[in-house]
Nucleic acid binder design. Structure first.
Length: 536
DNA sequence: AACGCACCCAACCGCGGCTTT
DNA sequence: TAAAGCCGCGGTTGGGTGCGT
């Protein structure tokens, strides 16, 4: 009540009034002054500006002491930085600022302060607010999070990093290169993944696997740097990477349904992370998150109902700006749904459940370990899901979902306006176009109607003679890309980073489990990449 | 006009890192 | 070396506003 009274009175003390001179009503207990919260008044602003003019920025806690301003130092700093600081831009973001923001976010992730350094006159808070609203807006509109040019740039840089990564073996890279080179897209991806740990527990701390692997093996820095966060050389905010959603044992109240909070922003980002730049269906990523919410919160497999519910929540009038991502009339299933299906498999469920009670909730490696352990004890699941999709029955959920992925992706490629549509990419990137000649004229545009592409075309595409670039073009747009592509050499058919995973895993898990892990990841990769259009 | 809803954004909160004592 | 204080960052919240019904 006293706080409210202060707010209402909106009294600001004279500049020279020290805290000890305040009326007793402004004290809380013996020593603590009741500091004001809420909106700043112009008088308070004047006092703060005056103080900063005299004393400069910093030492914010002294503001209250010197001016009697009933604001904590934090609040003063925030007010100054976000509103009172000179040369601040106000108003809507210009087109160039929007573009730059998207580009920076693609590179940095949610590093608002760093982004603000590249946007003169804009504050981190402003950028953050802008981005969050932008995410929601674009998600509602069914637009990709990043503009096509940013997506393309990310793709090209990723391609470049993949193609050159192996050539830098052992070379020490300049820190600037670690910060600014093309590998940053990986960081963005992994930032997003970390952001989405609640959605995909299995990708949790993916970067750490690489880091561990490199530390253990002394691998070349190119591999290492591809996963090094560009912002902080050391681990920051451990909680972000050590509290996956599944850690329900340590759940806070609001974590009971973590996806409710993150579905808007992060599900789209996870799709972005997987290369799904263009949306499949407005709100579909949210649907995916909802699926996770259902499947992971109660352990039941229920994908259809949330999907329907979400569709109902998003009437067609919410698709106003389909200038970039016009999609087929029948929305294909989400990639995440496929993953969801996989996670909802008995194996995955048991994994999740066991993970919940496990003291090891440290990330993908653990998840894979549990997965491997479970799979090793139930080979049927393993073979069904990872290496034997050709024998799957139509009723097999996992395989049908994988098939859905293929359909989805071909629609993606066939979509002339999709940022990752084959046409747009090939038109904009001559190198890719040259490598994708075998694709020309064979794009299964038929899939826009929801049908499968012709298998003979697919066979041609996926012959062993195809270049990695073409395959990479495809695999980067795959949901499993992050889970598998970096471990699987598409040209040779081997796990190119097998030594990383195997050795790192061996070091951590022991030979048996590491072998299971290797087989599992290889199996998934092999199936995905060698039989991408395997008929059911 | 009233109501509900969604959006926007300023401000707060909690945490971790750095510096000082 | 440890503790305390300060600062900055990122996530979240809540109030104001506009729009549609």
């Amino acid at each position: 009540m006293r706080q409210m009274k202060i707010d209402i009175e909106d009294e600001v003390l004279p500049n020279d009034m020290s805290g000890t001179q305040l009326n007793d009503e402004n004290y809380e207990g013996g020593a603590g002054i009741v500091l004001k919260k809420g909106p700043w008044t112009s008088t308070e602003d004047d006092i703060l500006v005056d103080y900063v003019k005299k004393h400069g920025e910093g030492n914010w806690n002294a503001v209250q002491k010197h001016t009697g301003l009933l604001r904590c130092g934090k609040s003063c700093r925030l007010r100054w930085a976000n509103h009172l600081r000179p040369n601040l831009k106000k108003g809507a973001f210009a087109a160039e600022e929007e573009r730059l923001t998207a580009e920076l976010h693609a590179k940095m992730g949610n590093k608002w302060a760093r982004m603000a350094a590249h946007l003169p006159g804009r504050t981190d808070n402003e950028i953050k607010n802008y981005w969050n609203t932008r995410i929601k807006r674009r998600q509602r509109a069914g637009l990709p999070l990043y503009p096509p040019e940013v997506s393309l740039q990310a793709l090209q840089e990723s391609q470049h990093s993949q193609s050159t990564g192996g050539l830098n073996g052992g070379d020490k890279m300049h820190p600037d290169f670690l910060q600014k080179n093309s590998y940053e897209i990986h960081d963005a991806i992994f930032d997003s993944l970390k952001d989405n740990q609640g959605i995909l527990p299995y990708v949790h701390e993916l970067s750490d696997i690489s880091v561990y692997g490199n530390k253990l093996k002394g691998l070349d820095s190119s591999q290492y740097c591809s996963f090094v966060p560009p912002t902080s050389p050391k681990r920051k905010r451990l909680k972000e990477s050590t509290i996956p959603f599944i850690d329900s044992c340590a759940m806070k109240k609001k974590d009971l349904y973590p996806f409710d909070q993150i579905q808007d922003n992060n599900s789209d980002k996870i799709a972005q992370s997987f290369g799904m730049q263009a949306p499949l269906d407005p709100g579909l990523s949210s649907h995916s998150s909802m699926c996770y919410s259902h499947s992971l919160s109660n352990g039941n497999s229920s994908t259809s109902k949330p999907y329907e519910a979400m569709k109902l929540e998003l009437p067609s009038l919410q698709y106003p700006e389909l200038d970039l991502g016009s999609w087929g009339s029948s929305p294909p299933p989400s990639l995440l749904e496929s993953v969801d299906d996989f996670l909802q498999s008995p194996t995955a469920i048991s994994t999740l459940e066991s993970d919940c009670s496990s003291p090891q909730n440290s990330g993908l490696l653990d998840a894979l370990l549990y997965q491997a352990k479970t799979m090793s004890s139930s080979k049927n699941h393993c073979s069904d899901k990872s290496s034997n999709s050709s024998t799957a029955t139509p009723g097999d959920r996992a395989d049908s979902s994988i098939l859905n992925v293929y359909e989805t992706e071909w629609e993606d490629y066939a979509d002339p306006v999709s940022p990752f549509g084959a046409t747009s990419i090939l038109n904009e990137c001559p190198a890719l176009r040259a490598n994708a000649n075998s694709l020309n004229g064979q794009l299964p545009v038929q899939t826009l109607t929801g049908n499968l592409p012709k298998l003979e075309s697919v066979d041609q595409v996926w012959t062993p003679n195809n270049e990695n670039l073409t395959l990479s073009l495809l695999n980067i747009t795959r949901p499993d890309f992050l889970l598998a592509s970096d471990w699987y050499d598409l040209g040779s058919g081997h796990c190119k980073n097998q030594t990383i995973t195997t050795d790192a895993a061996t070091a951590f898990l022991g030979d048996d489990l590491a072998t299971d892990l290797k087989h599992m990841t290889a199996g998934i990769s092999k199936t995905m990449f060698e039989n991408p259009f395997q008929p059911l």
